[in-house]
């Protein structure tokens, strides 16, 4: 799939933002006043900014409000409701805390749950697509939640939760990549089933329908340079997990270390998200002889 910058930024930033808001909702750290205001501002800017980036992906962003109508069948529509509802809940919680000095704990807990639910719903936009076997799996949702919680823990300065979450999510990502590599073949679609000619022999594309590119080849038949995929995966793992883990384990861990850990983690997540899109093979590639390697 085409790794559109708008979608990479959307999923990365909103994941970080909702992760931080989830931690703030349960009172980790239990801040008040100006410090709380700054924490919440970071959370809202990341989550809201990420959502704003998603609008750049639209051909007609001026009609974006129509996306609230089809929540009964569409995960994208549910995402619109979940994100705006969650931001509303957390805004109420933050206002009471910052302006009124009042911590409405049940509201915070509900907001934290809604934050995670929103990240889960975002992941379902991708995981629900049967046409992309690599995504069509529960591990897609697990990884989105893992990344959001890692980023949230780092941004919220929760050292020990962050250590545990980073270790688990890093391991999970490694395993998810390994399992994902085999999923296209396991899904059973081949050039033979795509053309219905498989019973006659070996089918291969002789002549594509068009000599140039098309929306389909640009959007869905994006092929990442495979010799770089392993390197990029290593870079993503190092930046997103190993560097923050090392920084968190430093004996005199403080603000500079925390900032560096967040920065490194964010860069790593961006690399991992680029791979999430670039490595995903769509079955329509079978009509273009460009399926999984």
């Amino acid at each position: 799939m085409h790794p559109a910058p708008s979608l990479i930024l959307f999923t990365t930033l909103s994941g970080l933002g909702f992760g931080l808001l989830a931690f703030l909702g349960v009172g980790l750290p239990s801040v008040t006043g100006w410090i709380a205001a700054v924490f919440f501002a970071i959370g809202f800017v990341l989550a809201g900014g990420g959502l704003a980036f998603s609008a750049f992906h639209l051909g007609h962003p001026e009609r974006a409000l129509k996306a609230f109508t089809q929540w009964r069948s569409s995960w994208l529509s549910r995402e619109a409701w979940a994100a705006s509802g969650t931001l509303g809940l957390m805004a109420l919680f933050a206002a009471a805390l910052v302006l009124g000095g009042l911590r409405i704990a049940p509201l915070g807990w509900l907001g934290a749950l809604a934050c995670l639910a929103t990240v889960g719903v975002t992941s379902m936009i991708y995981a629900s697509l049967r046409t992309v076997p690599r995504w069509h799996h529960w591990s897609t949702t697990a990884m989105f939640l893992g990344y959001a919680l890692c980023g949230g823990a780092l941004l919220a300065g929760q050292r020990w939760p962050a250590l545990v979450l980073l270790a688990l999510t890093g391991l999970g990502q490694f395993l998810a990549w390994k399992a994902g590599d085999a999923r296209f073949a396991a899904a059973g679609s081949t050039t033979g089933t795509a053309t219905g000619l498989g019973h006659l022999g070996q089918v291969r594309l002789f002549e594509p329908p068009h000599t140039g590119g098309s929306y389909l080849t640009r959007e869905m038949v994006f092929v990442v340079a495979r010799k770089h995929a392993t390197k990029l995966r290593s870079i993503a793992l190092i930046l997103a997990f190993l560097v923050p883990l090392a920084l968190l384990l430093l004996p005199d861990f403080h603000h500079l270390g925390a900032a560096l850990a967040v920065l490194s983690h964010t860069l790593g997540v961006l690399a991992a998200r680029w791979l999430f899109f670039a490595e995903a093979e769509h079955v329509v590639g079978l009509y273009y002889n460009r399926s999984a390697a």
Binding site: G59, H60, P61, A64, A67, S74, I125, L216
Partner: peptide
Amino acid sequence: TDCIGCGLCAWACPYGAREMDPAEKV
């Protein structure tokens, strides 16, 4: 007139039957 040009339907189609118009973005 309702299409926001998100492209998700084209992703969901296994057959590549849907294409975004390069001018109208629907």
